[in-house]
Lab assay of single mutants.
Amino acid sequence: DVEEQIRRLEEVLKKNQPVTWNGTTYTDPNEIKKVIEELRK
């Protein structure tokens, strides 16, 4: 469920934690926001 994935990513973003997505770890909040934007398409 895309909405659920977006919610999880936004939670991690608020906590300033790194996100691992498709084998890539993102630590930059701007990169995480880009992943969220991609999911919304």
Rank of each mutant, 00 (worst) to 15 (best):
D1G: 12
D1H: 11
D1M: 13
D1I: 07
D1R: 12
D1W: 15
V2N: 06
V2G: 03
V2M: 08
V2Q: 05
E3F: 14
E4C: 14
E4Q: 10
E4F: 08
E4R: 09
Q5Y: 07
Q5M: 13
Q5I: 15
Q5D: 11
I6R: 01
I6P: 00
I6D: 02
I6H: 01
R7M: 10
R7V: 05
R8G: 07
R8A: 14
R8L: 14
R8Y: 15
R8F: 15
L9F: 11
L9K: 00
L9P: 00
E10W: 04
E10Q: 09
E10I: 09
E10Y: 05
E10K: 05
E11A: 09
E11I: 05
V12H: 15
V12Q: 15
V12G: 15
V12W: 09
L13T: 03
L13I: 13
K14T: 11
K14C: 11
K14I: 11
K15S: 14
K15Y: 11
N16Q: 10
N16D: 04
N16L: 06
Q17F: 15
Q17T: 10
Q17S: 09
Q17V: 12
Q17M: 15
Q17N: 08
P18W: 05
P18R: 04
P18Y: 06
P18H: 08
P18F: 06
V19K: 01
V19Q: 02
V19H: 04
V19P: 14
V19M: 07
V19S: 02
T20I: 15
T20V: 14
T20N: 15
W21T: 10
W21M: 15
W21H: 15
N22A: 06
N22L: 10
N22S: 03
N22I: 02
N22H: 09
N22E: 15
N22P: 12
G23H: 03
G23T: 01
G23K: 01
T24V: 15
T24R: 07
T25W: 08
T25F: 12
T25R: 02
T25I: 12
T25V: 14
Y26S: 01
Y26I: 13
Y26H: 03
T27D: 10
T27R: 03
D28C: 05
D28R: 01
D28M: 02
D28E: 09
D28P: 00
D28G: 04
D28T: 06
P29I: 09
P29R: 04
P29D: 04
N30V: 13
E31S: 05
E31G: 03
I32G: 01
I32M: 03
I32P: 00
K33Q: 10
K33C: 09
K33L: 13
K33G: 06
K33P: 01
K34H: 09
K34R: 10
K34Q: 12
V35P: 00
V35R: 02
I36E: 00
I36H: 00
E37D: 12
E37R: 05
E37H: 08
E37Q: 10
E37P: 01
E37N: 06
E38F: 12
E38A: 12
L39G: 00
L39S: 01
L39E: 01
R40W: 07
R40K: 11
R40L: 09
R40N: 03
R40H: 04
R40M: 08
R40E: 04
K41S: 09
K41R: 13
K41N: 11
K41G: 10
K41P: 02
K41T: 09
